[in-house]
């Protein structure tokens, strides 16, 4: 019985030690609706949620000893800035939640972190090395940079740039102005309208199943990735596809690609509908495939 008491006592001590190793974060400020919030440093996860208030809150737990610098300017603040520094020799482990007015611009940077943003209509500038970024909603402007971390965007930012080294990029939605770039990750753009889209990869595969607006343009360049362009039945666009060493597979019309310059690679020029948008697809040695998508035929291509 004594030993049981000892075990219980030991367990209580252990759990309080674990709790004591955390410190609560709770910072609240009156801010303007278009406040600019900058958060940088040691945290493992950050969830940003838009709310309908003239204030912001940063709440969560960080390891004891984490230094939090910065704060807000005179209320109502137009700018709030935080810098988190983990105790020496420890990995970033803080879990934070940030609540901001929807029109806010949020700038967040961390080494290895999960960032999830929803409902922000202002601007987002998110930067990680590893981890994961998920954006839900339609910010006016979205800039994401990641090395290995995957990026998912669900929504239609007014202006969007996503760049990764090996992280995969998935966009569900469209944008009037999109730039998606990866070295070796995959890029998948499904659904949604695009006006101007530029997609570049070195070795990563690219799948584009979005719709191009009238007079829209799409450029996809890859060195060795496969490029898949999925087209709705009523697509109206001119397509120029070129490979230097890869093949072109056309499952959309009966036209066959011709051998490229000096007999290397292949070329295919295709006009669909009245051709009021244009797609340029180029791959050095990856294959290019034109496929039928199952997108509703009522939408303009």
């Amino acid at each position: 019985m004594k030993s049981l008491h000892f075990l219980i006592a030991a367990a209580v001590v252990c759990s309080t030690t674990a709790l004591a190793a955390q410190q609560k974060v709770d910072r609240r400020h009156a801010v303007t609706r278009d406040v600019y919030v900058r958060i940088n440093g040691a945290f493992a996860s950050l969830r940003v949620t838009a709310w309908d208030r003239d204030s912001m809150a940063l709440v969560g737990d960080v390891p004891k000893g984490t230094r939090i610098d910065g704060g807000a300017s005179e209320p109502p603040s137009k700018g709030v800035k935080y810098y988190l520094e983990a105790p020496a020799g420890t990995q970033a482990a803080g879990r934070l939640e940030l609540f901001v007015p929807a029109g806010a611009t949020v700038w967040a940077k961390a080494a290895n972190a999960t960032m999830e943003v929803s409902g922000v209509t202002g601007g987002l500038d998110l930067n990680i090395i590893g981890g994961r970024i998920a954006v839900n909603g339609t910010p006016r402007e979205l800039n994401v940079e990641s090395m290995d971390g995957a990026v998912t965007v669900t929504g239609s930012p007014g202006w969007m740039r996503v760049k990764t080294a090996s992280g995969n990029i998935v966009v569900n939605g469209g944008s009037p102005d999109a730039g998606l770039t990866t070295v070796s990750g995959t890029i998948t753009a499904q659904g949604g309208d695009y006006e101007r889209a530029r997609i570049e990869s070195v070795t990563g595969n690219v799948v584009f199943g979005g719709l191009l607006r009238r007079a829209g343009s799409l450029t996809i360049d890859s060195h060795s990735g496969t490029i898949d362009l999925a087209l709705p039945v009523k697509a109206s666009l001119d397509i120029e596809a070129t490979t230097i060493a890869g093949s072109i597979i056309n499952n959309v019309t009966s036209r066959r690609p011709t051998p490229g310059r000096e007999g290397r690679g292949e070329e295919l020029s295709l006009g669909l509908g009245i051709g009021d948008a244009r797609a340029t697809l180029r791959s050095f040695k990856g294959n290019i495939r034109l496929l039928r998508s199952d997108v509703s035929p009522n939408k303009p291509g």
Partner: peptide, 15 residues
């Protein structure tokens, strides 16, 4: 906490 002379990177957009 109030930090009086906080300067932030100006944020601009084209649209």
């Amino acid at each position: 906490m109030t930090v009086p002379a906080l300067t932030l990177h100006p944020r601009v957009t084209a649209s």
